[in-house]
């Protein structure tokens, strides 16, 4: 093993970790508040990526502008998803197991919907920023630095939101106990809707940066990445955003470092192995258990 290869892997790992951090924080925040796993979450990534494709290739917008707009549009998609699909079930207190069946059914629906519209072939963005920069002995393209920067900014924004805003405090309260939150006068339905907006925004953004990072993509983009997101979320303790950030960092780096030494088509196997080990030995996540969030 050469140290320089490890170092190179760490560089790639930071980029994958950035993509993963955006998506796993989006998933885990929604879980914390609503208390069920959204198996259609991968499609938020796919929808974001294809919306950005339309804006970038169809309307010839700059890729980063397209990304931001796609994030906002995906937020609206997620908000509608909650109102149209999920709320009829939560209103009549459907058991969690039914909600999971509903989300996986919607996953199939949305994935095939994107495929029906755009076809199964590979797509690519038009992005001219290709020059390579040296940062601390690591090689990055300008694109990749953007990805890391965007993820870092988003994480700071999420932190600020949770820590200092009224919305963030309400989310944390609901995450601890939604019944208590309801009793103490928190408008839980509205907060839930905000969380879906946020979850969709982060999912959409991460879909675009994932598509940029893998260069070309198909409608399976998000659903193939979903269990890697699960691995990061469970590693950090399901429902805990800071844990998800840590999980994303560890899994992103582990996947890319391993890709330096093994067949790179197997790098998701590393995420899978981590997921299995976590479920076997520490299903509550690596962070010490205290209140969530």
């Amino acid at each position: 093993m050469s140290l320089s290869m490890v170092w190179l892997g760490v560089g790639f790992g930071l980029i994958t970790a950035s993509v993963l951090a955006l998506s796993s924080v989006g998933l885990t925040l929604q879980f914390g508040v609503t208390n069920f796993v959204n198996f259609a979450y991968g499609e938020f990534l796919t929808i974001g990526a294809y919306l950005a494709f339309v804006l970038n290739m169809g309307l010839h917008l700059n890729i980063w502008v397209s990304m931001f707009a796609a994030g906002i549009l995906t937020a609206v998609v997620a908000w509608l998803f909650n109102i149209i699909v999920i709320e009829p079930f939560t209103r009549r207190k459907a058991p969690m197991i039914i909600l999971l069946v509903v989300t996986i059914g919607m996953d199939l629906f949305l994935m095939n919907g994107v495929q029906a519209l755009f076809g199964p072939e590979f797509k690519q963005y038009n992005d001219p920023s290709g020059s390579i920069l040296h940062v601390g002995g690591l090689l990055f393209t300008v694109q990749q630095l953007w990805i890391i920067g965007i993820a870092a900014a988003a994480m700071v924004a999420v932190h600020t939101l949770l820590k200092y805003s009224k919305l963030g405090k309400a989310m944390r309260a609901m995450s601890d106990s939604s019944e208590l939150a309801l009793i103490s006068g928190i408008p839980t339905r509205r907060i839930t809707q905000y969380v879906w907006l946020l979850s969709g925004f982060l999912g959409g953004l991460s879909g675009v940066v994932l598509a940029i990072n893998v260069n070309n993509f198909t409608p399976a983009l998000g659903s193939e990445f979903l269990f890697v997101i699960f691995a990061a979320v469970i590693m950090g303790g399901i429902g805990r955003p800071y844990g998800a950030m840590l999980g994303a960092l560890i899994i992103g780096v582990a996947m890319e470092v391993s890709a330096m030494f093994f067949d790179s088509s197997y790098k998701t196997v590393v995420a899978f192995a981590i997921l299995v080990l976590m479920l076997l030995f520490r299903p509550q996540g690596i962070l010490p258990s205290r209140g969530r969030v």
Binding site: V85, V101, V102, I104, G105, M106, D107, L108, F109, L110, M111, N112, G113, Q115, A116
Partner: peptide, 9 residues
Amino acid sequence: GMAIGLLMV
């Protein structure tokens, strides 16, 4: 695929 997903829901 869309129909099957929608049918489940």
